[in-house]
Amino acid sequence: MKNLRYRQYRDRLMEMLLVAATIIVLVPLLIIIVHVVVNGFSALNWEFFTEELGSPSRALQERPTGLVHTIIGTVVVDFLALAIAVPVGIGAGIMLSEYPEHMLNPTLRVMNDTLNGMPAILKGLFAFVLIVKPMGTFSGISGAVALAFVMLPIIARTTESALLSIPWTIREAGLAIGLPRWRVVLSTVIPAAKTGLVTGILIAFARAAGEAAPLLFTSFGNNYLPNHWSGFILEPVDTLPQRLYSLAISPYAEWHAMGWAAAILLLGFVILCFTAARLATRKRFKT
C-alpha cells in the first residue's frame, strides 16, 4: 500500500517537473512575442508598408517613413537564396540518400555537416569574397548567396532524411523494371517524399530569413528604394533582420519603435513558415 502511494506520488512529481520544463520553454517565447508586439504595434501604420526609410530626420520631423524597401528587399533576397539553395540542396540530399555507395558520398556528408555547423557570419564573409569583391559593390545577390549557404546544409539534410523514410524496396522495384537510377529517384522516390521535402525547405527558409550576420557585409542595407527594380539584386539592399539590427543600435527613439515593428514582421514571417511546415507534415499522416 505504502509502495503504491509512493509510486503515485513519484508519478505526480515527474509530471509536475515536465510541466515546469514546458513552461520554462514557453514563457520566454511568450514574453518576447508580447514585448515585441506591445513595443512595435504603434509604429505599424499604413506608411510603414508604403514608404521608404530615408534619413533619420524624416522620423524625427514626423514626416512619412517606413520599411517598404526592406520588406521588398527581404522577399527578393530570401527567394533568390531559396532559388539557389533548393536545387543544390536537394541534389546534395539525393546524393546523400540515394547513392550511399558512391565514392563522393562520405566527403559530401562531412562537408555538409561542416557547413551546417559553420557560424553564419563566416558564410557572409565567404559570399563577400566570392561576389562582393569581384562585383565591387554590396548587392542583393551576394546576400542571397550568403543566405543560400545557410539554407543549403539544412535542405540537404532534411532531403536526405525525407528520402530515406521511403522504403528501399521501392527503389529496387523501380530498377527491376529496367528504370535507370535517376529515373527511379525522380519518378518514384521524390514524389513519395514530397511533403518531407517541402517541410525541409520551409524550415531552412525560416531559419535563413532570421539571419542578420551573413547580410551585414553582403546585401549591407539601404535606406532607400532603388531607382530600378534591378537595384534589389545588383545594389545594396535592405533586409528585415539587418534593418532590425541597425534600427536598434541607432540613437533615435522613433527608429527604435520602427525596429520593434520590423521585429513583428520578421516574427510573423518566421512563424508563418514554421506553421506551414507543420501543416505540410500533418498531411503525411492522413494519407
Binding site: I166, P167, T169, I170, E172, A173, G174, L175, A176, I177, G178, L179, P180, S187, T188, P191, A192, K194
Partner: peptide
C-alpha cells in the same frame, strides 16, 4: 545493367507498388 534488368525482371517478397502512382 539497366538494359539487363529490362530483360530480367524481379518480383519481391513484399508487394512494392509505387506509392504515389
Amino acid at each position: 545493367p539497366v538494359l539487363i534488368r529490362r530483360r530480367i525482371g524481379m518480383v519481391f517478397q513484399k508487394p512494392t507498388p509505387f506509392p504515389t502512382m
